[in-house]
Amino acid sequence: MNKKIENALFGAWAIALTATAGSLYFSEIQNFIPCTLCWYQRIFMYPLVIILAIASVRKDPGQAVYTLSLSLAGGGIAIYHYMLEKIPALNNQAAACGTVPCNYEYVNYLGFITIPFMSMTSFLLISGLLIYIIKVSKE
């Protein structure tokens, strides 16, 4: 297998692992209660850690096709969640999200880096690497 594909698989796994560790840090150590949309994003991120770890060890680029759907779905939720936080017209919809409103910002670094932004970035990076793997493995 191509070394570039191996590195991309490992990179996607490392991003998923970092995102999972970050979400667990925020909820278990910082005691931030995840909102409903945060839980949905976790549902799509956590399996990526396991599937991409196995794919990386087995050097199986075929898993990129299956994991891409998880990454795109999670990324879509993260984009919507970020929009709920940052677009004032959508703020009213977020109040009915659950115990914790989905527009509540536990962190806000530099005025735009929130937890959904970090999640969105992770999903987009993973998706980009998976699309790259699919493209290169077809060549």
Rank of each mutant, 00 (worst) to 15 (best):
I29L: 04
I54G: 01
Y25G: 04
A64C: 07
C97V: 11
K86R: 14
P34K: 06
I33R: 15
I87G: 02
P116A: 02
V65C: 01
P101I: 06
C97H: 09
I87K: 01
G62Q: 04
I29M: 06
L48H: 00
A16M: 05
Q41A: 08
Y80E: 03
A64P: 01
V107D: 03
L90D: 00
P47Q: 03
G74P: 06
V107T: 10
M45I: 01
L110D: 05
K86Y: 08
N103E: 12
I29W: 10
A21L: 12
L70K: 09
T36Q: 14
N103M: 13
F112N: 13
L90Q: 02
M118Y: 07
Y80S: 10
F26M: 07
Q63P: 00
I113T: 04
I87F: 04
L84V: 01
G111Q: 00
M83W: 08
L37W: 14
G74M: 08
G98I: 01
L37H: 10
F112E: 05
V100N: 08
L72E: 02
P88C: 10
T99K: 14
Q41L: 07
A95Y: 12
V107G: 02
A94H: 11
A89E: 15
Y46D: 00
T20D: 06
L52R: 01
F26I: 05
Q41I: 04
T67K: 12
Y104M: 13
A73G: 11
E105K: 14
G74L: 04
S71Y: 14
G74C: 08
T18D: 04
T99V: 15
Y109V: 09
I87V: 10
A21R: 03
W39N: 15
S27P: 02
L52I: 03
A55L: 00
N108K: 15
M45T: 04
K86L: 11
M118T: 14
Y109I: 08
L24V: 10
N31I: 05
A16V: 01
T67P: 10
C97L: 07
P61W: 03
V100P: 05
I79S: 11
S56F: 03
I115R: 12
I79K: 06
C35H: 14
P47G: 02
V49Y: 00
G76W: 00
T114G: 11
Y106L: 11
A94F: 12
I50Y: 12
